[in-house]
């Protein structure tokens, strides 16, 4: 019986210690009210939240750099979320094929809430609404950037935040 318990513990450890690098199931579709919790965690984890769309050339260009960052820190106190702003009607036809073709390891969600004026400032007052845009935060510390990032820029910001 104790051996059974130990096995369960080991299994749980394996499952919960590698949440990021596994292949993801289909992206969840959510409105901003549901999404907002991802902007407010205070759990010592570094969150990298990138707003993008499959049709956005500068977004697609920087995705490999985000993937590289996710590969580097994915098993640490680190969580990457790729927030797609594709249209809802493109979920099956564009977004899911794109994720599969590009073998994205980071979690993708589809933020479907076209009343963007109601929520852009809640992501950051600095954001005009243009994509790509990225929020990096840990507890109360926040860096927001409208425009593209390279791996080196991302790494320079994230690395010091990871203990």
């Amino acid at each position: 019986m104790p051996a059974f318990f130990v096995n369960i513990l080991i299994l749980m450890h394996i499952v919960f210690s590698q949440p990021v690098l596994e292949a993801k199931s289909k992206p969840v579709i959510m409105d901003f009210a549901t999404f907002q919790q991802y902007l407010e965690h205070e759990n010592d984890t570094v969150y990298v939240i990138n707003f993008w769309a499959t049709w956005c050339a500068p977004c697609v260009k920087e995705l490999p750099d985000f993937e590289k960052l996710n590969q580097k820190f994915g098993n640490r106190n680190f969580k990457m979320l790729l927030v797609s702003l594709d249209f809802r009607k493109m979920y099956e036809t564009r977004l899911i094929p794109f994720i599969e073709e590009n073998k994205l390891s980071a979690e993708v969600i589809l933020l479907h809430d076209p009343d963007a004026n109601a929520w852009i400032d809640k992501v950051s007052p600095e954001w005009s609404g243009a994509i790509p845009a990225t929020l990096i935060y840990k507890n109360n510390f926040r860096v927001f950037h409208e425009g593209g990032y390279t791996f080196d820029e991302l790494n320079t910001i994230v690395e010091p935040l990871i203990p």
Binding site: C56, P58, N117, S128, G129, A130, I131, E146, G147
Partner: peptide, 10 residues
């Protein structure tokens, strides 16, 4: 003054 999601000007 309002905001909207849009494509970055290239």
């Amino acid at each position: 003054f309002t905001k909207a999601v849009g494509c970055t000007i290239k």
